[in-house]
Design a protein around this nucleic acid. Structure first.
Lengths: 136, 136
DNA sequence: GTTTCTGGTCTCAGTTAGAGACTGCAAGCG
DNA sequence: CGCTTGCAGTCTCTAACTGAGACCAGAAAC
């Protein structure tokens, strides 16, 4: 289980090294706590740095800066700096970011439809409410 | 940014508390490093505990046990114990788990189509290769 | 003069994931 | 008989990651 053999199972029969599976690489990003939320906030309109912080109250500046940086590196958002004083930085969705949101549509619908039943099951199953919930 | 006002933005205009947004709750689960991989491994056939460990070589027993537990709590997989010695435990997909995989289809297609371009951008953008990648 | 705003970075603590040892029992092998 | 293997997990220790909040410098409002 610790030997990292290649040719492991992956999504849609990807048979290469696990770390190179494209779906894994993409989901690792958008599956984190903030990326998707940021993308969906930017979907309606471009936002400035602190405006994003206000729109998503429980993100820290540190994670906001870091997540924006990786989203930009992935070409999902753009970043533009206007040389005013103080310089104002604006972020917005790229075409690729928008296409990701579109691809997410069915999943979002599924989540909305299934959420009540899942939450009921989760409650019935016991206290396992957040994360992987290993016993303390 | 630290005041947790409710009525924050969420997916598809969810306006309640961020923690109750159904899409967030679902994505927090399937977005983690192992849930989706496990689900897709179980899609083809039911597996026993150690068989899953062999199919996904780089998961630790600890995360395997924990992730299976939460997937079961969410009603995405079933778990059946046969009282042999030693008892053998089998896991498989439920109908709900299968419906999630179906909903994931467009996202998987998108990821496959976009992965080369994203990886190229990521390389061009610099060393930000894994995770949020805050500078050391 | 003090506060507030701009976009971030830095440091410190707390939480979390991963590695690997450990449990107890049964079967296979020499 | 003794050794190893496999079963399904759990336990502990350490490494990594996350969140909270201080800090920067300049400008505008009060």
């Amino acid at each position: 289980m610790t030997t990292k053999t290649s040719a492991a199972v992956c999504i849609d029969g990807w048979s290469g090294d696990l770390d190179t599976c494209p779906v894994r690489q993409v989901l690792d990003r958008i599956g984190d706590r903030w990326s998707l939320l940021l993308l969906l906030t930017l979907k309606d309109a471009p936002h400035r740095f602190n405006a994003l912080g206000r729109a998503i109250p429980d993100i820290s500046r540190r994670m906001l800066a870091g997540t924006l940086k990786t989203l930009e590196a992935d070409g999902l958002i753009w970043r533009s700096v206007e040389a005013t004083t103080p310089p104002s930085v604006t972020y917005g969705l790229t075409a690729r970011g928008l296409s990701l949101i579109m691809a997410l549509g069915p999943l979002v619908e599924w989540a909305f439809a299934q959420a009540p039943a899942i939450l009921a099951d989760r409650r019935r199953a016991g206290g396992a409410v957040s994360g992987v919930a290993i016993a303390p």
